[in-house]
Nucleic acid binder design. Structure first.
Length: 847
RNA sequence: CCGAGCGUAGUCCAACGGCAGAGACAAAGGACUUAAAAUCCUUCCAGUGCGGGUUCGAAUCCCGCCGCUCGGACCA
């Protein structure tokens, strides 16, 4: 055994050995499926990957030592635009670019020593994978859950493709390109996720091991509102104007109706004398960007259409307006204006002089007309005909009931969630397996003709429409149904489709006959532990849940939720240097430090140093490879796990990395001194042996418990503590010391697998440490004969004494009262109460 | 504006309602060395953002405020 720790010698050796790991099989052991969100093959791992994958690797290795049959796979989310851009910019085919990147990143993953089931590796772009993506799409089609619809869609002008609603942020920017999206009318493919809105919402309640905030985000995204759809009769329209409201109890307070400017009724009901003004208003709203339109600080604007509808409850005529604050996409695209009890309506009505009516009185009766603000709380109905006197929740029910009887409307639930637009006008994606036949219409490609492969010989000449749309040879196809000349769909699928089922494919990754066998998914799924970034809280996680439920209903799966336990890891930050005036970032090699202040090297501009998320644009990324070549994989892994709890932000620190390296050096030293006999066998007392054994078993208890609870930072601290105790111990060969040496090597192995394997071998053990048993906890070793008893008087600590652990409460009180320091505070006072916390403290309450 | 989370030594982080310190980094001093690095030893540092409440006892539970982070915001 070498005297000193040298990761560069041991890591390549161990990694080579792991290449030959036996393949996984289903067996009688309990299974454990640990999964990190698979990466996009950009070409280089970043620190976020290292953090993410280190977490699942520790959990997998730990679970394996605990006797579980562990599945810990990896793959590549390999379709997507960067590959296409590389083709345009550098003339390299997307397939080849992707392949090269995967090879490079696979090598990097291996250098980090992650224990993956490599025989199950998948890449979503490969035909053996996307064939099954297409097959599953056809399952959706057969279930009536995939359909084409013409509508206004989000268009990303930079990436030249449409986007799903989830992929556009609150400011109207694309999640990928950051460009402001435009609205375009197009006919596109959708998946009917709204059919599952209620179950996706309800089942959040079963995800007890998900972070609260992810559940809340999904709940908000689904956005359930319970209310009613009411119809307001208007001349010439048999259906009337249908509005959706969550406050049917305020229907007696309606003083106007508002349509979204895009609403199809606008044109039909506008009176001739209002036509010009209405058309001008609609044109103006159309010309505005999403941002302008939804910005809240601008006044709500509208114009009357001249039309008048009837409030069926009151028989009153109410004017119909159009206004920019009503969204066409939500509800029915029309609302009833109740300025007395809706803040937006109040603002609008005040601006345009529309009447404001009180129909819900506050519970204390304090409201009087004219109202100074909208009252939106619960109250008692007034000015509401036969419903006067009802509290507003009851009023809601009764009014909906009455509307249903009269045929004026019905109770209805509305969701914010919309169907998932999956068409993308790009080349590097999974082709949608559909054919358009002039005779038969939309025809699915039959199973035996799958996969619909991407044509290889394609020219990528600048951005613009998808190259597929120009490939006449590829597009032309015989109709699978009637054989007539037909045309292929040229759009590809959103890449989130590829990732909505990859965790299922891992259960049976080499199945050539179907996406996965029922037997394999029944055994391996659901994923027991999923780990990834919070940025997928809605997109990927919601889509995957949707897929799971649909495939369950198609009989392909037998469970309801794909991910049992979820951990969202925090970001990795590092120091960035920015000029506060221009917000320009400087790379570290252009920054100079003088007396703790920072200056730009070229011109001496003072800079601010701040912890920010690692990114190329801020020049503060740390390449994992440089850490690997300097300190090795075990140090890098230990650092990202130790520095912060996994769900929190992680601040990069070179000094702390070195600290982890020295810790591994110290553990090496501990084992070396034992093996070499350099630390001699000095005589130790039984009590010393018991004390050291207690430390050893405390560490065994804590490390296991902490891993189960994701507390890797404190688990590693416990290892450090044990190593410190060993270093301080006089004997280097006693039974307890030997037990400690074995324990520390095993406990360390899941975190730092290379050094773990090496030290195990140095101890003369032949087997693989990573498949050996986790050290057994001896509860009796934890028992203490004496404890430190803290004595408080009136809650303040006054003394601490050593007492036998077995002492009774009465004895403890006697010990406490015997203390000089305590007597000073109790003498001459009556003891009113004594509180004993067993094994810890005694509190004397005197007065 | 609404919602959630977080504020503990110089820094990162610990602490079932029970001694504020497990662990680390940094700093200082020392040992080793011709010297430096590495290594080892020793030392230093907060009363838990602020104000109240509950309790025998509060970093921990409750209320209000301040600050930071994240998410959602005209969804009728």
């Amino acid at each position: 055994m070498e005297t000193r720790y040298n990761p560069h010698a041991i890591e390549p050796r161990r990694q080579k050995q792991w290449e030959e790991a036996p393949h996984l099989a289903m067996d009688g052991r309990p299974k454990f499926y640990a999964l990190s969100m698979f990466p996009y093959p950009s070409g280089a791992l970043h620190m976020g990957h290292v953090r993410n994958y280190s977490i699942t690797d520790v959990i997998s290795r730990y679970k394996r030592m605990r006797g579980f049959n562990v599945l810990h796979p990896i793959g590549w989310d390999a379709f997507g635009l960067p590959a296409e851009n590389a083709a345009i910019d550098r003339g390299i085919h997307p397939a080849r670019w992707t392949e090269q990147n995967i090879a490079q990143m696979r090598d990097q993953l291996k250098r980090l020593g992650f224990a993956y089931a490599w025989e199950r590796e998948v890449a979503t772009c490969s035909p053996v994978y996307h064939r099954w993506t297409q097959k599953l799409f056809l399952e959706f089609w057969k279930a009536g859950l995939a359909y084409r619809k013409a509508g206004i869609v989000n268009w990303d002008p930079v990436d030249q493709t449409v986007l799903a609603n989830e992929q556009v942020d609150a400011e109207g920017r694309s999640w990928r390109s950051g460009a402001l999206v435009e609205k375009r009318p197009l006919e596109q493919w959708y998946l009917k996720i709204t059919d599952y809105a209620e179950e996706l919402l309800q089942a959040l309640g079963t995800l007890g091991e998900w972070p609260e905030r992810v559940r809340v985000m999904q709940e908000n995204w689904i956005g359930k509102s319970v209310g009613a759809e009411l119809s307001f009769p208007i001349a010439g329209e048999p259906e009337g104007i249908r509005v959706f409201t969550t406050r049917p109890d305020t229907v007696y307070g309606v003083t106007y109706l508002v349509l979204a400017p895009e609403h199809p009724l606008v044109e039909r009901i506008t009176t001739p004398e209002r036509r010009e003004a209405v058309q001008a208003f609609v044109a103006r709203v159309r010309s505005e960007s999403e941002i302008e339109r939804v910005s809240e600080d601008r006044p709500k604007q509208g114009v009357p259409t001249g039309a008048v509808a009837l409030n069926p409850f009151t028989g009153e005529a109410v004017p119909v307006w159009i206004a920019d604050y009503v969204l066409f996409e939500y509800g029915t695209g029309a609302v009833m204006g109740v300025p007395g009890h809706d803040e937006r309506d109040f603002v609008f009505a005040s601006r345009y002089g529309l009447p404001i009516r009180l129909v819900v009185q506050a519970l204390d009766g304090s409201l009087a007309e004219p109202l100074r603000a909208a009252y939106t709380e619960v109250g008692v109905l007034v000015n509401s005909g036969p419903f006067d006197g009802l509290d507003s929740p009851t009023g809601k029910l009764k009014i909906v009931e009455y509307a249903e009887q009269q045929g004026w409307g019905k109770g209805r639930v509305q969701y914010r969630l919309r169907d998932w637009l999956i068409s993308r006008q790009r080349y590097w994606g999974c082709p949608i397996p559909m054919v358009y036949c002039p005779e038969c219409g939309v025809v699915p490609v039959p199973d035996e003709q799958l996969p619909v492969a991407l044509p290889g010989d394609v020219e990528f000449s600048g951005r613009g429409p998808s190259p597929l749309a120009k490939l006449e040879d590829w597009i032309r196809v015989d109709c699978p149904q009637c054989g007539a000349p037909a045309r292929r769909e040229t759009d590809t699928m959103d890449t989130f489709i590829d990732s909505s089922w990859y965790f299922l494919r891992f259960a049976d990754a080499r199945n050539g006959a179907e996406p996965f066998s029922r037997e394999a998914v029944d055994y391996w799924l659901p994923v027991d532990q999923y780990v990834g970034g919070i940025e997928h809280a809605i997109l990927h996680l919601l889509y995957s849940r949707f897929f799971t439920k649909v495939l369950r209903d198609r009989g392909l799966l037998g469970f309801d939720e794909p991910f049992k336990r979820l951990l969202t890891q925090g970001m990795v930050l590092s120091n960035a240097f920015v000029d506060p005036a221009t917000k320009k970032y400087y790379p570290p090699d252009q920054v100079e430090e003088r007396d703790g202040e920072f200056f730009a090297r070229p011109d001496g501009t003072p800079l601010v140093c701040a912890m920010e998320k690692m990114s190329k644009s801020k020049y503060n990324g740390i390449d994992p490879l440089t850490v690997l070549s300097e300190y090795g994989a075990d140090t890098a892994r230990l650092f990202v796990l130790f520095k912060a709890p996994p769900e929190k932000e992680l601040e990069w620190s070179d000094a702390d990395v070195r600290g982890q390296y020295s810790f591994l050096g110290r553990v090496w030293r501990t084992v070396y001194e034992f093996v070499s006999g350099e630390k001699p066998d000095r005589t130790v007392s039984e009590a010393q042996e018991r004390d050291l054994r207690r430390e050893v078993h405390r560490a065994i208890q804590q490390v296991g418990g902490d891993i189960e609870q994701y507390k890797f930072n404190t688990a590693i601290a416990a290892l450090m503590k044990l190593n410190n105790a060993m270093a301080d111990y006089p004997s280097g060969q006693s039974p307890a010391y030997k037990e400690g040496v074995y324990a520390i090597v095993k406990l360390l192995a899941p975190f730092a697998p290379h050094i773990g394997a090496e030290l195990w071998q140095a101890l003369g053990e032949a087997g693989d440490i990573h498949t050996s048993d986790w050290p057994a906890l001896d509860e009796s070793a934890l028992v203490e004969e004496t404890i430190t008893l803290v004595i408080q008087v009136n809650g303040k600590k006054r003394d601490d004494i050593q007492v036998p652990a077995a002492a009774s409460e009465g004895e403890l009180q006697e010990f406490a009262l015997a203390s000089e320091a305590v007597r000073r505070h109790t003498d001459g006072k009556a003891i009113k109460k004594v509180i004993v916390v067993p094994g810890r403290l005694i509190n004397l309450v005197v007065g």
